[in-house]
Simulated assay, not measured.
Amino acid sequence: MSYDGPISDHFDGKQFFDPDGVPPKSLREVLRWQFGRDRQRRAWPEWVPSPHADTPPPRVDGGKVRLSFVGHVSWLIQTSGLNILVDPVWSERASPVRFAGPKRRNDPGIAFDALPEIDVALVSHGHYDHLDLATLSKLADKHAPRVITPLGNDVAMRRAHAAIKAEAFDWHDRVELGGGIAVTLVPTRHWTARGLFDRNRALWASFVVETPAGKIYIVCDSGYGEGKHFRRVAEAHGPLRLAILPIGAYEPRWFMKDQHMNPSDAVKALADCGAEEALAHHHGTFQLTDEPIDAPVAELHAALDEASIPRERFVALKPGQVFEV
Rank of each mutant, 00 (worst) to 15 (best):
L82M: 09
A100D: 15
R98F: 13
G62P: 00
P88E: 11
P102L: 05
D61W: 00
K64L: 13
P96R: 12
P57G: 02
S68D: 05
V60Q: 10
V97R: 12
A94T: 07
T79D: 09
S74A: 13
R59P: 00
F69K: 02
V60H: 04
S95A: 14
D54F: 11
L82V: 10
W90P: 03
S68A: 15
P57E: 07
H72W: 15
A100K: 15
R98Q: 12
F69P: 04
G71E: 13
Q78V: 06
P58K: 08
G63R: 06
P88A: 13
R66E: 10
K64R: 11
G71L: 13
G71I: 14
E92Q: 10
E92Y: 02
A100N: 14
L76V: 00
A100T: 07
R66M: 07
G63L: 14
S68E: 10
G63Y: 09
L85I: 13
G81L: 00
S80L: 07
R66Y: 01
S95M: 09
E92G: 04
K103C: 06
A94H: 13
V65H: 08
R66N: 04
V70L: 15
D61M: 00
S74H: 10
V89A: 10
R98W: 11
H72N: 08
G63P: 13
R98G: 01
F99D: 05
K64E: 11
V89C: 11
V86P: 02
W90Q: 05
S80H: 04
I84N: 12
S95E: 05
L76K: 00
V70S: 08
I84T: 06
K103I: 11
G71C: 07
V65R: 09
S80P: 03
S68I: 10
F69I: 00
E92A: 12
W90A: 09
L82P: 05
A94P: 06
I77N: 07
V65F: 01
K64G: 13
G101P: 11
G101V: 08
I77A: 11
V65M: 07
I84P: 05
